[in-house]
Design a protein around this nucleic acid. Structure first.
Lengths: 133, 133
DNA sequence: CTTGAACCTGACACCGGTGTCAACTTCTAC
DNA sequence: GTAGAAGTTGACACCGGTGTCAGGTTCAAG
């Protein structure tokens, strides 16, 4: 498929897809005229790239990681170096911390929402434990 | 306390603290000479600000939210408008989605780590279910 | 008074994925 | 062959919290 379809199917802008390619995250055949041609595997790969971006990894690290991952219909490619495994483990720990932080942030927000919602009604329910404040 | 101590105690750079103030997230008294003077409550507030930043909220929204939150020793300040409550709820949902995404990313990474670790040893354990690929 | 640490303001730069525009080429369907 | 959709490369800009440097002022201790 060509870039337009891939963009549509993966939900990622053409701009980003070209960027991914420029970063070596996404390979493509080229038509005689120079148009990119992607296989079915590309959709899955783009989704994976997005997941990694969302996790806060940068292009370079993703570029090193991807060749070590099995694409849906591509066999295993390369083996990760011990160094890379270490880095990935570190990333995973970072994600874990991030999730924990987000959970805390969520609580902060939740508290705010609760306080905000209860606020205007506070005078009507003086028995609320929050009314002390 | 002054900005240096606050930075030390909250683990946030002085630069950021000044920025927070410029965005209206953090108030300070000023000494006759113009030096910022913070109360104990500031530490807690800065931590909260960080939590909100970590959650992906921008300064403006945090600025609107903070006055509605009870500081540790400050009483309740303002009541949130229904509009703000809506926005916050939306933010919370966004955080939930973000956490879910991160969990998925974590799995992607985990899979990669597993594959990478198992990779070099694969030839030694041909009975592995992954060996089919 | 003096000295050095701490603080002040203001400005510039960065990151890095993405949006967008321009100018041009290729593809496809008629 | 020709029009219009779709693709190409290249360049510029943005966001927005943070690092950092410069040049000057204030504070606190001797």
């Amino acid at each position: 498929m060509r870039i337009g379809e891939l963009a549509r199917r993966s939900g990622v802008s053409e701009r980003s897809l070209r960027y991914y390619e420029s970063q070596g995250l996404l390979l493509s055949e080229r038509s005689p005229g120079g148009h990119r041609e992607f296989g079915e595997w590309a959709v899955d790969r783009v989704v994976r790239i997005q997941a990694l971006y969302a996790a806060g990894l940068h292009s370079k690290r993703i570029a090193r990681l991807l060749p070590c991952m099995r694409d849906v219909d591509g066999g295993p490619n390369e083996f990760a170096t011990a160094r890379l495994v270490d880095e990935l483990t570190e990333e995973r720990d970072r994600i874990d911390r991030m999730i924990a932080d987000l959970a805390r942030s969520r609580e902060v927000l939740d508290e705010a929402i609760a306080a905000a919602s209860a606020g205007p009604a506070r005078e009507a329910e003086p028995s609320s434990p929050r009314a002390r404040a």
